[in-house]
Simulated scan of single mutants.
Amino acid sequence: MARQRRLVAGIGVALLVLLAGCAGVSGTLADDTRSPETTETNDLERSIEVAAQGEASAEPDRATVLLAVESTADDAGTVRTDLAESDDALRSALYDWGLSEDDVRTEHYDIHQTRDTRPDADRSEYVGVHVYAVTVDDVDAVGEVIDVAVDAGADGVQQVRFGLSDERADELREEALGDAMDNAHAEADTLAANADLEVTGVYTVSTTNVRTSPYATAAFAAETGDAGGAPRTGIEVGDVDVTVSVRVVFGAQQA
């Protein structure tokens, strides 16, 4: 019996030695996992993300004039007839001046019944309005176009918007994007310098917003010139602005 106890004790000691050896191997493997190469790679995985804006401005090369023709009568049929006759006269005058059919389109057309607020409140009338959007490629000729329209029967000019042709808009957008990227690089360099880093390149770039701000005049009433030769219409022209926003992720490393 004593011999059996000694045998069991010997087996127990052998097992303890074996388990101790296995624990040492596990620790070594764990240490190998956190090797210097892995630590160095993690240290290099740095980035700088910035959001920047860019702008570009240019003189407009296209204008849109909103012209209104109005009519009021006791019945809708009369209003419709008045608007139709005015439409023929206005379009003919604008076409004779040099605009094409594609340059003159209907922006808004409406005929509705209203109730007079005067003492005889039971009396109602019909009011109609036809708003035209007239595109003019020669911005210097906008005032002349307005004079032609007013002489042909237009009752008012609701607005004049100065914008860009498609080709010029694309050029201005490219300029604004270039300005935005220059600003992004400058901001990334500043951030890197203050964080003891240096920029190594660009990871990703995205455009988040592109906005064009046309120049627009306020509405004003139209008045037909008299036979003595009234002063012709003059329109002030302002620049068109294009603004873009970009988001850029730069790679960085320890300086």
Rank of each mutant, 00 (worst) to 15 (best):
V104E: 07
E187Y: 02
R5H: 14
G24K: 08
Y126N: 03
P231R: 12
N194F: 02
S245I: 02
T217Y: 00
G251W: 02
D75L: 00
M1Q: 14
T207K: 00
V134S: 06
L90P: 08
A14E: 12
R211C: 00
Y132F: 15
V65G: 04
S165D: 05
V160I: 10
A133S: 11
E49R: 14
Q254I: 03
V134T: 08
E144Y: 04
A93Y: 04
V127F: 13
A141G: 07
A9S: 13
V131I: 14
V13W: 14
D120P: 00
D170E: 14
D182N: 10
E55I: 15
V104I: 09
A184R: 08
G251H: 00
V246L: 06
A68M: 08
T117P: 11
G225A: 13
A52C: 12
E70D: 11
G153Y: 04
A56M: 03
E45C: 09
L172Y: 04
R46G: 12
Y95D: 11
E125P: 01
D74R: 09
V244M: 00
G201C: 09
A20V: 02
A30D: 08
D179F: 03
A20L: 08
A56L: 05
D239F: 00
T41A: 15
V139F: 10
D166M: 08
V79M: 00
V65S: 03
E187S: 12
T39E: 15
S26Y: 13
D103K: 01
A89F: 01
A141P: 06
A121I: 05
V150L: 15
G21Q: 15
L172W: 02
A76D: 09
A52K: 09
E125S: 15
T28S: 12
G98I: 04
V79F: 01
G24P: 05
L66H: 12
V145S: 07
H130N: 13
L90D: 09
F220V: 02
Y203K: 14
S26F: 13
T224P: 05
